[in-house]
Design a protein around this nucleic acid. Structure first.
Length: 582
RNA sequence: GCGCCCGUAGCUUAACCGGACAGAGCAUCGGCCUUCUAAGCCGAGGGUUGCAGGUUCAAAUCCUGCCGGGCGCGCCA
């Protein structure tokens, strides 16, 4: 309907142009919006206000001229010039009821469109180091990315979801050593576990599994080697950890060290996979950082940069001249000790993404990575790819509160609430809904006490309850009147204000999905569902569905049948269940 | 110090990417269950959109400067 009105307006403008009332060379961008207020009709357009600037004509006067030139239309009953020069369109009562038939016919498909049907888009999210279980901070990125994926799919994109496993580098070495030390303790050794190693209980679990599988194969009595390390290292703990890593590699040898490392990373990765699966978050691919290095992809990406003349050597390190591409300073790719940096892997990884033929790339990162955007973009540009095809979304942190106190969340300290615990406490549906309720650049305060003790107040129940109520009405309708109540129902009987409001809302669902997908804004769907549930609950209290009048009853069943489908489709976008009973 | 994000009712927030009197929820107060689920509905109070300028017919939205909060600024990942 909106595009239809736009067409009417365009025709009016070109009519005025041939009349000579408007200059022929003006740029017309017609923008029709739904009126917020019913007093302003059904649709509104600010065209005259925009054109008055370009033409120098008074806006109201111009609006009158446009209105007079709009072609006759069966649906438009009145065009009014209002305020400073708005054109308000009033439409025939009941013009939207056709949407009910459309919903009941297309069912699951209602809300999906084919707007972007040929574009392949890759969305990379979560991508947490496999050094520990996912915590509630990761949950937001997971829920957000999964929902974005659903939205993009709904508007026709070919979506590929990927998790980048940072399974290489120093953090993994620290994890390996942490597991090995716990393992030694299980073998009966006595040692001081470093404060800056991974403290969490899960490290014990990983070590225990290692011990079950390999027995004492990796045991080296501490008295034989412990004294060789610089004394307990309160001077420099990080150096102490590095020394431990070296010592472990020396004692275990490459093969055994890698066995321990792989055991640790595999165990934790599979735990992460299970966890995400239960959270309703699926990936098409898990891309290993280690595999980049193993396949020489890092080396060849660096060679490509060097060939194009964007690198240089300084102080024994290899640098990328990212400042030539808008970054604030140059970045190190290969350190003086010969090791490549995390950034080097990321350059190779993003190059690889482009090579895989995606039209668009979306990265969802935690807000703490914002300083990273410029250098990744720089690398993409330097390698001859179009940086505009990469969209980076920064998701602000979710702060967790309990007892009014903010919880610190650090994987190394072991002080964190896992995603698994959260899911068990508040449930998958509530957690998923809560995580995407706010726009991603807004900080999210997650009050655990509130979520656990007052689950009744959680808005997800409000929406789910609307769905359950509808299901209940249908089951009673079937009991009293038999099935197939929807056949031949006449939606024109829906004349109550609450019924009209509902039809209008249902009619908006597809455009809201498109908008949410364009903006990568799941909260738009959340708000829509709350509005729809609210309109339904109001209707439910004002109008009886199962009335004696069979015609009216049929019309109302048709209406709530459509609502049921839209609630279900909307909740499905969020991976939230639509229960039949509550 | 420099850079990015944010500041809206007591609290948590929305506002269709410049539009009409800034909408909700929680909390507070007052009503509604012998009719389809009261996890609901109806009503009331509560706002100088952090502050000060600027652009515009029109600013929560755009620009400038302050104030306040978060995050980042490694040959860490």
């Amino acid at each position: 309907m909106r595009t239809h009105i736009s067409e009417l307006l365009i025709s009016a403008v070109s009519g005025l142009q041939t009349d000579g009332d408007l200059p022929a060379d003006i740029n017309v961008e017609v923008c029709v919006t739904r009126s917020k207020d019913k007093a302003h009709g059904d649709f509104a357009c600010n065209l005259a206000l925009q054109l008055s600037k370009a033409t120098g004509m008074a806006a109201r006067q111009l609006a009158e001229k446009i209105a007079a030139r709009v072609p006759e239309d069966a649906t438009v009953t009145k065009i009014e010039v209002a305020g400073p020069g708005f054109l308000n369109f009033y439409l025939r009562v009941g013009y939207q009821v056709e949407v009910l038939n459309q919903i009941l016919e297309t069912r699951d498909g209602f809300g999906t469109t084919r707007e972007y049907s040929n574009d392949k888009v890759q969305i990379e999210f979560v991508s947490a180091n496999p050094t520990g279980p996912l915590h509630v901070g990761h949950g937001r990125g997971a829920a957000y990315g999964a929902t974005i994926g659903n939205l993009l799919e709904a508007v026709g994109y070919n979506v590929h979801r990927e998790y980048y496993m940072n399974d290489a580098g120093r953090q993994m070495d620290i994890l390996t050593v942490s597991v090995w030390l716990r393992y030694l303790e299980l073998c009966g050794e006595t040692l001081t576990f470093p404060d800056n190693a991974y403290q969490g209980d899960y490290v014990w679990d990983v070590a225990a599994a290692l011990h079950r599988q390999y027995g004492n194969q990796f045991n080296y009595p501490v008295p034989l080697w412990g004294s060789q390390l610089s004394s307990d290292g309160d001077a420099d703990q990080e150096a102490y950890i590095d020394a431990l890593i070296d010592k472990a590699q020396e004692l275990l040898g490459e093969n055994d060290y890698n066995l321990v490392a792989k055991h640790a990373s595999d165990t934790i990765s599979s735990d992460i996979k299970d966890d995400l699966e239960l959270f309703g978050v699926r990936f098409d691919n898990w891309y290993s950082e280690r595999s980049l290095a193993n396949n020489d992809k890092v080396r060849s990406a660096l060679d490509a940069l060097t060939r194009k003349g964007h690198t240089y050597n300084k102080d024994g390190a290899l640098w990328f001249r990212s400042s030539a591409f808008g970054d604030e300073k140059d970045r190190v790719l290969v350190r003086g000790n010969g090791q490549t940096t995390y950034f080097a892997s990321d350059v190779a990884y993003h190059l690889e993404k482009f090579r895989r033929g995606f039209d668009q790339l979306i990265d969802i990162w935690g807000a703490d990575h914002h300083g990273y955007i410029a250098r990744v973009r720089a690398a993409i540009e330097a390698l001859g790819e179009d940086p505009k095809r990469l969209r980076v979304l920064l998701v602000q942190f979710a702060n967790l509160y309990t007892g009014g106190k903010k919880l610190a969340m650090s994987t190394r300290s072991g002080e964190f609430v896992t995603l698994r615990q959260l899911r068990k406490q508040v449930g998958k549906d509530a957690a998923r809904f809560f995580y995407v309720m706010r726009k991603c650049e807004q900080h999210l305060d997650f009050d655990l006490d509130l979520a656990t003790s007052q689950t009744q107040d959680n808005p997800v129940y409000y929406v789910q309850y609307a769905h359950a109520r509808i299901c209940s009405v249908f089951s009673q309708a079937a009991n009293r009147y038999g099935k197939n109540q929807l056949v031949d129902a006449d939606a024109a009987l829906l004349t109550q204000e609450q019924e009209q409001d509902l039809v209008t809302l249902l009619d908006q669902f597809p455009e809201r999905v498109v908008y949410a997908a364009d903006q990568l804004a799941p909260h738009v769907i959340v708000n829509y569902l709350r509005d729809l549930a609210n309109a339904f609950h109001s209707f439910y209290n004002a109008c009886q569905v199962l009335v004696d009048d069979a015609a009216l009853r049929g019309a109302r069943l048709k209406l709530i049948g459509a609502i049921q489908i839209v609630l279900r489709n909307g909740l499905a976008l969020l991976n939230v269940n639509a229960p039949e009973h509550m």
